[in-house]
Each structure stands twice: as structure tokens, then as C-alpha cells.
Design a binder for these strands. Structure first.
Lengths: 151, 151
DNA sequence: AATCTTGCTGATATATCATATCATTGCTGT
DNA sequence: ACAGCAATGATATGATATATCAGCAAGATT
């Protein structure tokens, strides 16, 4: 990722936080930056290690979990519940409103692509769920895939 | 669940294991039965506790994990990776070949309904994934819902 | 500016989920 | 009966996540 692009995203993230009243502190920003620069999802403990190594700091994992909670609330990062890892949102700098995220997770290299599926499919899925008597509350999908490079 | 129905399922499970060369031992059968009788997915440690209470036994969690691995391989149980819990397959006694399971997980009461979505939707989903350059390897979906009773 | 309030972080403990490894038991086929 | 292999026991440890209370820092109120 180019530095210019990174800065643009971080600035937008700052805007989002300002707007919601949250504070994008130095540490929170540091965690977000680190996640934006990672090609793969990271566990909370991996994030902790990376952060501490990159800053000669010693933040506890506990703090990282709290910061991840915050960033999730601001929709700046997503948790992949199938792998217990976390990724930066791919669409922070996009102006359009956020779609419900869908993740393609490569089973070989662990890379993740965040896509938006056609609304029609999401609707059909919701209809199927409704047919079963249930109401869909969150259609975030985590799909186990093989990426282009690995296949 | 009626006892007659439970026995039918357990007999079918026995058949499946015989066919694959696996052994449905007393303990494995006990764990499967316990899971079939549960209305909600259970964690490995919850299964361990239930089993030990129901039999004055003291199986270690380690053994339960191994047994769950076995039962998963035989497709008698499924793991819900979004919640780290395990459920008995709803279709053990069905004669038709197994579809890829899709789970509707109630966010309030934790109950789970295992459904098969229309093949057309699955195909469309796969096509979208292909458009993104990825290849779908496992389309098991875990959908966060609210069930009829809870809504 | 001093104080207050709130939210952020530190620190520690503990709960929960999962795997590694080696020893022992017990079926199964010969 | 015996050898071989699958299943289980036993113990240790790693990985993920939450609870709780104390201290600190930034903006709000006076």
C-alpha cells in the first residue's frame, strides 16, 4: 500500500471517529495502521506482538482487545469469527455507505478479500431463511475459498 | 425427541460407521446421543461436563475433542466455527445424500436450524466468488438470525 | 487555572477453547 | 494367544477472550 493512500484512509478514519464522538488515539491509530498494512488477518495476540515490536512498547493483549472492540464499533475493522482473526475494513476511504461485508478467505495463504455480493443473492438468501421461519439479522458471510495465486 | 426416533438415528449412525470402517464405540455413541438430545449447540467442555454428570464418569475434554473429530469425519456432527460449538447433524436418518449444511443460529436462544438452501442460490454465490477470482471450497454458511419463538 | 467528569489504558487474574505428546488399554484379524 | 492398530487416559501447554479495579489523560465546567 502506498503511503499516500494509507494516509488518506487514516484521515478518513479520523473523520469517522470525530463524527461518532469516538477518539482515534495514537494507540488506536497505530493498531489500525498495522492492520491496514497486513496482507492477512491477524489474531489479537499477533497484533499485540507486532505492535510491541514496532514501537518498543509493551501493550498488553487486553488493551488490544479493547481497541479492536472500539475499531469494530466504528466499523473500521471486522472480526472473522470462523478464524478468530481481525482485518481492517477494505472500504474505509470509500464514500458510499457500507454494504454488509462478505469475506473470501483463502485456505492456503490466509489472505482475505472483502467483497459485496449482489443484493439479489442476499435477498434470496434472506427469503430462504424467512421460509424456514427465521429472521436474518446479520448476513456477513465468511466463505472458505482458494485465491487466484494459490489455485 | 422420541426414544424410538433416537434409536433409529443411532442405528443409522452405526450403519454409517460400519460402512466407513469407523467404530462407533460406547463413548462415541454416548456423546452423539447427548448431542442429539440437546436443543442448542454445545462447546466441547459443556459436552464433557454433561457426559460426566450423566454417567458418573470422568472423561477428559481431550477425549471429547477426539470423539468430536471422529464424529465430524463421519458427518454425524458439525462444528459451528462462528461460535466454537458443536451440533449433531439433523439429517443422520435421512436416506438422501447430504447437502452442504447451512445453519440458522438464533442470537437469543442459541437454537440452531440446519437447512439446505436452494442449489440455485449456492450456484449464484459460487459464481460471485468466481468473479472475484476465488474458488469456493466450502459453502457452509452460519447465518445469525432470530428464530420464530424469539421474534 | 483548578477541578471535575468521562473515557482510555495498565495490570493482573482467570475463564474458555484447543492441541501436543506419550502411556495404556482393548479390539481384531491371523 | 499374539501382534498390530485403534481408542482412550493422563498431563501439559498453547491460544483466545473476558472480568475487574486502579491510575491517568483529555476535554468540560466552574
Amino acid at each position: 500500500m502506498k503511503e499516500q493512500q494509507l494516509n488518506k484512509i487514516l484521515t478518513k478514519a479520523q473523520d469517522i471517529c470525530n463524527h461518532s464522538g469516538g477518539r482515534l488515539t495514537t494507540k488506536r491509530k497505530g493498531i489500525l495502521e498495522l492492520m491496514l498494512l497486513s496482507n492477512v488477518p491477524l489474531s489479537a495476540y499477533e497484533i499485540t506482538d507486532k505492535y510491541n515490536k514496532s514501537t518498543d512498547s509493551s501493550m498488553a493483549a487486553m488493551s488490544v482487545y479493547r481497541i479492536l472492540d472500539f475499531l469494530e464499533t466504528e466499523q473500521l475493522v471486522h472480526k472473522l469469527s470462523s478464524t478468530n482473526k481481525y482485518v481492517a475494513c477494505s472500504h474505509i476511504a470509500c464514500s458510499h455507505s457500507h454494504e454488509i461485508p462478505q469475506f473470501l478467505i483463502c485456505g492456503k495463504c490466509q489472505s482475505v478479500k472483502e467483497i459485496a455480493i449482489a443484493k439479489r443473492i442476499a435477498d434470496e438468501l434472506e427469503q430462504e431463511v424467512a421460509n424456514a421461519g427465521y429472521k436474518l439479522v446479520n448476513s456477513q458471510l465468511e466463505l472458505q475459498c482458494i485465491c487466484e495465486k494459490c489455485s
